[in-house]
């Protein structure tokens, strides 16, 4: 199978600030691919480039085999985009919004009628077709966005933070819909998110931090790179204990949010040894399986949310 998205050395700058730095990767056709990263990590810029909203600066990119510089119309024809900011006209009804979008993609007449009915049925919007969009809930609005994005049967669907503003039920709906589009119609789904638990549902995850690709693999493989178990220690002076752990037991621990975090195989045995080695110094110690957050910390040296605060 050919790659749906191919990026090589993609770099983008806003003046002095580098938003994307030498990004290279491939997304396979039919894949469910997630760009994970804190806000300011570069994923929104990447999204704008892929959605053809911004011109490429440096590097090469191709979507569905078409060059993102030259064959922009061919790409636009085959690309479905769901923006984070709602792209609906609130003064129009659900059906009018869909028909408006369809016209921009050359769909009219009988084809449009059939496609509209199909979208409304797929997204459970049939009984809402005549309602003004401004009267709909957030979850329903997102469904209309999806209907708009899928009306021309795109081969590649891009979604920017699609879960933002959705309640848990609507999120489940969204993921079911995306999985079905991929399974039944072979649509490649690429989305950005800052939600770790959401990224876990993807085939592969690319972690972007400060414009750079810091990790790219399946969720399980990423967790495996962290190694064994994750141990979190609460203590009075984490910096000092970190040094002592290194000196006495040869353990590398990061200080994260005033706590010590380390990854180690056979964590349960290490817990006993650590507590014995530093009597009275450990306020609490917990053992867990590594999460994507641990992966993120491992790859970037800082906590996920912390990155967001210090991002330029």
């Amino acid at each position: 199978m050919s790659a749906a998205v191919q990026l090589s050395n993609l770099t983008y700058r806003y003046g002095q600030r580098t938003a994307l730095d030498q990004l290279s990767l491939e997304i396979q056709t039919g894949e469910m691919f997630v760009f994970l990263g804190p806000n300011g990590g570069g994923k929104t810029t990447l999204f704008r480039l892929l959605s053809t909203l911004l011109n490429l600066q440096e590097g090469e990119a191709s979507l569905l085999g078409y060059d993102l510089r030259r064959d922009i119309t061919e790409i636009r024809l085959r690309l479905g985009v769901v923006f984070q900011a709602p792209s609906l006209d609130k003064k129009l009804t659900v059906s009018e919004n869909i028909r408006f979008q369809a016209a921009l993609y050359g769909l009219g007449g009988a084809t449009l009628k059939q496609r509209e009915a199909e979208m409304l049925a797929q997204l459970g919007l049939a009984d809402r077709a005549r309602e003004l969009v401004e009267t709909l809930s957030g979850g329903l609005k997102r469904r209309v966005e999806l209907a708009k994005g899928m009306i021309h049967h795109p081969q590649l669907l891009l979604l920017d933070e699609p879960s933002t503003g959705l309640d848990p039920g609507a999120r489940v709906d969204l993921w079911q819909y995306l999985s079905r589009m991929r399974r039944e119609f072979g649509v490649t789904v690429v989305l950005t998110t800052h939600l770790l638990e959401e990224a876990d549902k993807a085939d592969r995850i690319a972690i972007l931090n400060r414009g750079k690709l810091v990790a790219l693999d399946t969720p399980d493989a990423l967790r495996a790179t962290v190694g064994g178990d994750s141990i979190t220690i609460e203590t009075e002076d984490p910096v000092r204990l970190s040094g002592e752990l290194q000196a006495q037991l040869g353990l590398a621990a990061n200080v994260v949010d005033g706590r010590l975090r380390l990854e180690q195989a056979s964590g349960h045995e290490w817990i006993a040894r650590i507590v014995e080695a530093f009597p009275g110094r450990i306020a609490s110690i917990t053992l867990g399986k590594p999460t994507l957050e641990d992966v993120f910390i491992e790859k970037t040296g800082h906590r996920f949310w912390q990155a967001e605060e210090t991002a330029p």
């Binding site: 053809t52 985009v81 792209s87």
Partner: peptide
């Protein structure tokens, strides 16, 4: 946000 949806149409 409506405009960006229009701008990326073919």
């Amino acid at each position: 946000g409506l405009l960006q949806g229009v701008l990326i149409a073919p």
